[in-house]
Simulated assay, not measured.
Amino acid sequence: MRIVDLSIRRPVAVAMAFLAVVVFGVVSFSRLPLDLLPDVSFPTLTVQTQYPGVGPQEIENLVSRPIEEAVSVVQGVRQVTSRSRPGRSDVTLTFRWGTDMDFAGLDVRERLDLLNLPPAATRPTIARYDPNAEPVLRFALTPARPLDPNIPADRRELVALRHLAEEQVRRGLEGVEGVAGVRVTGGLVEEIHVEVDQARLAGLGIPFQQVVGRLEAENINLAGGILEEAGAEYVVRTVNEFVELDEIQNVIVGTANGQPVLLRDVG
């Protein structure tokens, strides 16, 4: 009752106090910081490891499981999940909110350096989820009718749609003021599949890895440095990437009985 009695005896003072609270509230509200896209750091880390040519089961046993066992004892880890795919392992660590992710990343790296992974596997890399890297807007290009990628004619249309997105749509959006980056996903990327007759290779005594190595060595552009002459500089390059299908078929993959063996001979 003292507050009520005081309010009755001093109405002017109570009114001034109430007005002061309102004024301070309005001023504080007007000065609150606003951010359309606030910087939010999620306490997650992803350990990515490449192991080319290995199936999901082997990835799980040889890569994902050892990494899980090594990083699960890191301080602050709340959950560990993994995803094993052909040739790749992704292990995701979820930490408690408030964990210093810089120190957590260093701790995870120390644990990974103690692992004995298969020699053919790449060194594990640690990636942090950045919400700022997520797209703000998404545009979808759809064909006029449903397309089946197993049909050659439809496959060509899907490849053309991807080419349209990369060469025209992306370049047009990148020129818009305020756009930091444009990423194209989906569709079909034009590829050339080389099918090799294993029996014919074995008969000629040519290892399969030798065929792969020859294709990699032939399909490459190399920089040769800069040549200076008469005050002018010339960029020296070795341009050797495949342009025509015949160039791939005519690659020499080995020799048999002193004669060169072309890719077309074993494909």
Rank of each mutant, 00 (worst) to 15 (best):
M1N: 11
S7N: 10
R10A: 12
A17W: 14
F18S: 15
L19Q: 05
A20E: 12
V22A: 13
V23N: 08
V23F: 15
S28G: 09
S30Y: 06
L32I: 15
L34G: 14
L36F: 07
D39F: 10
S41D: 06
F42A: 15
T46L: 13
V47E: 02
T49V: 11
Y51Q: 05
G53S: 02
G55W: 04
P56S: 15
P56I: 08
I59E: 04
N61K: 10
V63E: 03
I67S: 07
A70T: 05
S72P: 02
R78K: 15
R78Q: 14
S84H: 04
R88T: 14
S89Y: 04
S89V: 02
V91N: 02
V91L: 00
L93A: 11
T94K: 13
F95L: 13
F95P: 08
R96C: 04
T99K: 14
V108S: 08
R109M: 09
E110T: 10
L114G: 03
L117A: 08
L117F: 00
P119V: 13
D130W: 00
P131E: 05
N132T: 09
N132Y: 05
E134D: 09
T142P: 06
P143E: 04
R145K: 12
P149Q: 01
N150S: 13
P152D: 12
V159A: 11
R162K: 13
R162M: 04
L164D: 08
V169K: 12
V179A: 01
V182F: 00
L188H: 02
V189P: 12
V189I: 10
V189K: 11
H193W: 08
E195Y: 12
A199L: 14
R200Q: 11
R200C: 05
L201F: 00
L201K: 01
L201H: 01
A202S: 12
I206K: 00
P207C: 03
G213P: 06
R214A: 15
N219S: 05
A223K: 11
A223P: 06
I226S: 06
I226H: 02
A232T: 07
E233M: 13
Y234E: 10
D246T: 09
E247P: 02
N250L: 03
T255I: 10
Q259Y: 09
P260I: 00
L262C: 07
L263P: 02
L263A: 02
D265F: 00
